[in-house]
């Protein structure tokens, strides 16, 4: 799932400074689940914005809407009437959702209200951790299903750095597990420790062409 977090208020306020009527648009999928841009956050951000502007004596009118997926043109299109009413759109979707919104309503400036941070999972209530770097060249099968590229602080591809602390903790952050220790333990459990001896050549990130494209088999 895509994880995002709200931008600093100062940035949002500045972005909105020129406008008197805006649409605060949430997305009902990933960013709802990570408490960054669902209907609830839309309500809170809109309210906060109105309060801020009314304290400055420069009232702002906000419309609020949340679509199921802002990365789908068909779903964003439902907002047409609302977008027509406003001067600008403040989108709480991930970067992809913001772009769809911007593309669909080319005449309106669209501002992101969140920073899209990573692909991750919930560790506990209200805490998300990064799991996948979307590198486009997955080798999780050889690391026991643990991605050292993302979960190792140094992103090492070939075993731990040598600074691993006692108890298998990371040199840089003693609260975090050393990803390579996790990999070792997992492979040990599976009787596949021989994989630890393999050397992997540096990843060729050029293999991922920008912008990335994924074409599924024709359905």
């Amino acid at each position: 799932m895509i994880i995002a977090e709200r931008k600093p208020m100062e940035e949002i306020k500045q972005a909105m400074a020129l406008y008197k009527k805006v649409l605060v648009a949430g997305c009902g999928t990933c960013v709802t689940v990570c408490w960054a841009g669902g209907e609830k956050e839309v309500g809170i951000l809109a309210s906060q914005l109105r309060l801020a502007r009314s304290a400055e004596g420069n009232e702002i009118v906000t419309l609020e809407a949340t679509v199921e997926r802002q990365c789908e043109k068909e779903m964003v299109a439902e907002l047409e009437d609302k977008v027509a009413e406003v001067e600008a759109v403040l989108s709480l979707a991930c970067g992809s959702g913001v772009q769809v919104m911007a593309e669909l309503f080319e005449d309106k400036p669209v501002f992101p209200a969140v920073n899209t941070t990573f692909i991750g999972m919930p560790q506990k209530e209200g805490l998300w951790v990064e799991m996948c770097g979307a590198c486009g060249d997955c080798f999780l099968d050889r690391t026991g299903g643990i991605c050292p590229m993302v979960r190792c602080a140094k992103g090492l591809l070939n075993g731990p750095c040598g600074g691993t602390r006692k108890g298998g903790k990371c040199e840089i952050d003693p609260d975090k597990d050393c990803a390579w220790v996790l990999v070792y333990r997992r492979l040990e459990k599976q009787g596949r420790l021989d994989l630890m001896r393999q050397y992997y050549t540096p990843k060729n990130f050029r293999a991922v062409k920008r912008p990335g494209r994924v074409q599924a088999a024709k359905a």
Partner: peptide, 11 residues
């Protein structure tokens, strides 16, 4: 208690 209603990010 309504705690769930308060936390629900999708309202």
């Amino acid at each position: 208690c309504g705690i769930c209603a308060a936390v629900c990010p999708a309202k």
